[in-house]
Amino acid sequence: MSAPVVDAKRHTPQGDPSQKPSLVHRLAEHGIDRTLWLLVPGLLFVIVLFVYPFLYGLNLSLHPNKGGMFGAYKAFFTDPDMRGWDSLWITLKLSLPAALINVIAAIPLAYMMRGNFRGKRLLTTILVVPITLGTVLTAEGLLNFFGPRGWFNRFLGLFDLGPVQLVQNYWGVLWSLIISGFPFAFLLILSYMSGIDPSLEAAAKTLGADWKQRFRRIIMPLLAPGLATTFCLTFVLAFSVFPSAILVGDPSGSTRVVAYVAYNAWGQMFDYPLASASAIVMGVVEMIVIGVVLMLRSTMYKGSTGGKG
């Protein structure tokens, strides 16, 4: 298709060197035409709702109330009231395992659900329902179920076990992150999984591969880039954890996450530059984790997987 276009450029029409192709055609060759207008609403949204607030916050974080240009950042990491390092570490300790568990748990389910079987729609619905529940509802459910007087501990009580402390601490928040993050991971991985041509597995079968070998040698390598992407997305969701850290966590101690620290700087200390600096640090840490995962991803096979995509 491109050959005639190149030709047209070299030999101007009718061999007349003065006659150039019209402006519309020259622009079209660089991909500029009227369909570009379709970008306008999206660009407007991004600029108004993301770029401007982000730059505003960045600017704010660089004009702290005291102590030079990077004073707020210095305060975040060194101020004993902020304990920035601790909160970053706490947030990573929650979000990395949550993302990892979500991805790993979704793989076998998606693998089982890639075909068609009776009740598939019902099962998918059940698995996806937690998306529709807000964090608050999930948290209340967790409190009722895992709380000191919840069903779980009463059940353990029947066997003279427990009570086990599963809420108002690290575990409560981790559970909440898994419940709310799993449906995303599952839906994404299911779509990556169904993008793999089923005849590849059939071919592997006829070549003598049992299900473990097929999974390890065929499915996993083709799925891995999708898993990396899914991990990044669920990680970002989990890293910005805030409501559940307060509702089912221990926000002053073991689940003192970065979002909570930033919120405190804003809502309790009224130090807007410090709050902005916290948010920027949070973003940078997310970028670092995603960067590492995407670097790993770039080493994988990312071409066609032959399926319906």
Partner: peptide
């Protein structure tokens, strides 16, 4: 197979 079903990776 009709679509060859070669392992693309």
């Amino acid at each position: 197979f009709q679509n060859y079903a070669l392992f693309p990776h």
